[in-house]
Design a protein around this nucleic acid. Structure first.
Lengths: 124, 124
DNA sequence: AATATATATGAAAGCTTATTCAAGTGTTCA
DNA sequence: TGAACACTTGAATAAGCTTTCATATATATT
């Protein structure tokens, strides 16, 4: 995918590679899109949240069940669930005193799978 | 980040839902796998790194070109390239004084795409 | 109404991380 | 050899994040 460039000895970068930089700049998505993408991956970048998402992919669960499953305080889980909810990754429904959480977006597993492919490639 | 060793108090909820929790626990991947997955997404969770990866997907580039493209100092870019390299996402080759970076893993774009699907779904 | 249970939340502590600055390495060329 | 260039690296600072603790809210039960 990466295009070879001419063997340039000097890097008067701004001048000589200007063409490449301009071409890349044109093809780059909007600043905001890339920012949003980073924000999404940031949410995935914590093992507690990864575990929560993985668990919810298996089954709808209430807060204290998740806390017990992961051996963490209910408060910590609640805080993380809020992050996940704000990211549009999980949703909740109340049933009496209990609040059940479940996945909002079915692509979560697919994002995980792509990540796992990279990890398995790397460990070769 | 550091996890508590002390056991989490179980609520009545846990007793009732014990079956679900046990079922989910069985199906969860290894602790280490989930940790590695989070570490990978953590690397994607920064807009500077996202931009670098996106740029390198378009074309192999040298450090100061990336710095110019993103309007950042060469030092900052160099630090981030090291993170990306350690994650096995980019590779480098030296040509004289210049060091060219390119993508190491062709799945990067696919991971981005999955993320973008989520973002577009969310903005509906 | 009072109490217990399940969850949410605000603030603070403690840790992580991104960028900057200054100094270093490696390469080319006069 | 020395100066210029491209890049790297270590330390420091500042910003951000996760968890804990204490407290608040919502619901059910007696």
């Amino acid at each position: 995918m990466a295009k070879k460039i001419q063997p340039i000895e000097r890097c008067d970068c701004d001048v000589i590679h200007e063409e490449i930089v301009n071409k890349v700049r044109e093809k780059m998505p909007q600043e905001e899109t890339l920012y949003d993408l980073a924000e999404l991956f940031k949410v995935f970048g914590d093992s507690t949240r990864i575990k929560i998402l993985w668990a919810l992919d298996e089954s709808e669960m209430c807060v204290c069940d998740i806390a017990f499953l992961l051996n963490m305080t209910q408060s910590a889980i609640s805080h993380q669930l809020r992050v996940l909810k704000q990211a549009g990754l999980v949703k909740s429904r109340r049933e009496g005193k209990t609040v059940f959480y479940s996945l909002e977006d079915e692509h979560v597993k697919q994002i995980f799978d792509q990540g796992l492919i990279h990890i398995s490639e790397e460990s070769k």
